[in-house]
Design a protein around this nucleic acid. Structure first.
Lengths: 143, 143
DNA sequence: CTGTCGTTTTAGACCGGTTCTAATTTGTTG
DNA sequence: CAACAAATTAGAACCGGTCTAAAACGACAG
């Protein structure tokens, strides 16, 4: 029997790692939220959604902490904030260069596969500025 | 002396027209706001900005009416709502197909000349949906 | 293991943009 | 001009998000 056959004895290790290398202390709340965010593929969540999800699990976190954590993760480059609706922010666990579909009727945000949208021409930024990011939002309606 | 040499005796006529054909009664408030919005080239305003601007002129309009009017104009296709910042909406008097620079530091929005950005490839929209609009936002930072 | 100290979390107050409500005013039509 | 529907209004309410001050916690030295 080899090590690789066993269940990982330190299931939190990768998350602790992730937080540490982002310069964030691995606290109970941050670890729990990180698990929810990063252990199930790409996600787009609002603060309220994540807070509710946490509450429904065994995790007790205040809404303030959810906001703090989302912003810290964003500042650390672990998340990306997406603004498509007035008065509500989404946080995307996919931080690679990509764009979004927004299904207005449902308030549902989806990643667009990286290479299925292409910009063939970009404008010169205004005097004294440089391009920080280019975002493409494809707003779709239901048939 | 020809008609075209004279000052237009009905300076509000074009605006009344515009409102009427949008199915909106040409009330005092709507006319005043329309003048502010449409008589000085392309603009990007927030509700608060427009309200303040109106107040500074001779126009008395409530903030509620500014919101109502902006939304009605948007529904009628006279304006376009642009969402780039959490918790604040911009309204763009340019309703043609075009995109935006957003200068994050100033909260300043600018039109990108129509043909200086080009999408060479668009994705298939998700099952059961169709593309309603494609928005490109170029976020720029100051040097 | 314990004490210390800076960091994090928390409840709840607060904030700013936006929407709602019910009463009043205005535009239109006969 | 009367009558009625539509628009406007002040102010309350709402809602996502932020702030505050106090309590809890994590890391580390001893």
């Amino acid at each position: 029997m080899q090590y690789s056959d066993m269940v990982d004895p330190r299931p939190f290790a990768p998350i602790v790692q992730k937080l540490r290398s982002a310069g964030l202390r691995p606290t109970r709340q941050r670890m729990s939220l990180a698990k929810l965010l990063f252990e199930t593929g790409d996600r787009h969540v609002t603060a309220e959604q994540l807070h509710q999800e946490a509450s429904q699990g065994r995790i007790r976190v205040s809404l303030a902490t959810v906001y703090n954590t989302l912003h810290q993760f964003t500042a650390a480059g672990l998340l990306r904030e997406v603004v498509v609706q007035p008065g509500r922010s989404y946080f995307d666990t996919n931080t690679s260069d990509h764009h979004h579909f927004f299904i207005e009727a449902d308030g549902d945000l989806q990643d667009i596969p990286g290479d299925s949208v292409a910009l063939s021409k970009l404008p010169e930024p205004p005097q004294g500025t440089r391009i920080a990011r280019v975002e493409v939002i494809v707003r779709v309606a239901k048939d």
